[in-house]
Amino acid sequence: MTKSTDSPVIDPFEAALGVHADKGRSPWEDAWHRLLKNRAAVYSAFIMGTIILLVLLGPLVVSWESDFTDWDFTSSPPSFSSGHWLGTDAVGRDILVRTLEGGRISLLVGLVATLVSLIIGVGYGAIAGYFGGTADRIMMRIVDIIYALPFLFFVILLMMVFERNIVLIFVAIGAVNWLDMARIVRGQTLSIKNMEFVEAARSCGVAPWGIIQRHIIPNLMGVVIVYVTLTIPQIILVESFLSFLGLGVQEPMSSWGALVSDGAQDMESAPWTLIVPAVFLTVTLYCFNYIGDGLRDALDPKDRL
């Protein structure tokens, strides 16, 4: 039975939703509307956008260079008259510019390492889930084994092996962070692969690899997006953790973790050197976590209570 557009009968359901069913709404649109209703997530996305813009454009606007040492103002508190709006560190470098440029590194590590973990995790999980059987058992057993290892210690060992090369920081962190992704993707694949549309594709003679690419992976996107948003803050945290221990990015480059570490050294005489990068780092992590939570509620309705 099809409903014509000029039908006077309005489904009470439609009326409640305030939409016309004949216009149709994709699950993605539904999710989008659910997300917009989540105020914490929307505010977080807004703040996050501001931080990203600041980090990208800020260093171009602020007149100080990040490695310029202003000997007239060492460890000077935030003030407008000195031109250092958020103060300077012990050797007279502008905290604002350093924090913004450190943010570039922190966010970049978060994005790139998440991408690495995404590619490995989705590939691994989809293959294990789709082929099932012995392959699945062996592959997931390997994940279990690696899972039980003290992962952070391996990142530290990798950092020693790779001589603290910035590109390899990304890869190292991403390479040990794909396990959760692989598990989630595998579980999801197991349930998708038995659905009718996959069976239909199989009966049309599509090769397994084609099915994984064309039918499984696109249907994993919801879960993957949620998980990516939750992985980015984790990785930023790991990077700042490493930098805090002096095992992450090296001078003159900086990241929020490294700045917090520096700030903690002279917090008694110059607390702003600790507080400024700490606030940026914390607010970013907070926002990512809230956006991830909101996305999970929006994209995974069965988890909603």
Binding site: V260, A264, M267, P271, Y286
Partner: peptide, 22 residues
Amino acid sequence: AMLGISVPNFVIAPILILLLAV
């Protein structure tokens, strides 16, 4: 709780030291 997850302990620790110890 979300704050507890988001604030790394190497940020909380110096701040607590500053407030409660220093």
